[in-house]
Simulated assay, not measured.
Amino acid sequence: MKVKCPTCQNEVEWKPENKYKPFCSERCRLIDLGEWASESHVIKGESFNQQLTPQIDEFSEDLPPADEDFFKH
């Protein structure tokens, strides 16, 4: 079976020997990784922090008030 490399669109044989699949080469794989790292590629949806905020707020409500002298030592 042949697929197109997500980076350069060259046809790539999808087989176990191809260690870079679905990419055609390490170069294309690294280009794709760099695009994810620089956030050029993103998956739409809530960020991880947006997902946690309601849980953190809910947890914080159950905590006792902070001791004012705690950090003065």
Rank of each mutant, 00 (worst) to 15 (best):
L33E: 14
A66D: 06
H73L: 11
F59S: 02
A66I: 06
I56V: 15
E68N: 09
E26G: 07
P16R: 09
D62T: 12
P16G: 10
C28H: 00
L30C: 03
E68M: 00
Q9W: 00
S47L: 06
A37S: 15
T53I: 15
E11W: 05
C24W: 13
V12H: 07
E58F: 11
F59Q: 04
D67W: 02
F70D: 01
K21F: 04
C8V: 09
C5W: 03
S25I: 05
L63K: 00
K19S: 07
R27E: 12
V42G: 04
A37D: 15
K15V: 07
I56S: 01
H73E: 12
K2D: 14
Q9G: 03
K72A: 00
F71T: 01
S38Q: 15
L63T: 09
I43V: 14
E26W: 06
P54S: 15
Y20N: 10
S25W: 08
E35D: 10
K44M: 01
S60G: 14
E61A: 15
I31N: 12
Q55N: 02
W14L: 02
E61Q: 10
D69E: 10
R29P: 01
R27A: 02
V3M: 05
P64C: 08
F70L: 10
F71E: 01
Q51W: 08
I31S: 03
T53R: 13
C8E: 13
S38H: 04
K4N: 15
C28S: 14
E58P: 00
E26I: 15
P64A: 02
H73D: 11
A66R: 12
E39F: 11
Y20R: 01
L30P: 05
K15G: 08
A37P: 06
D32P: 01
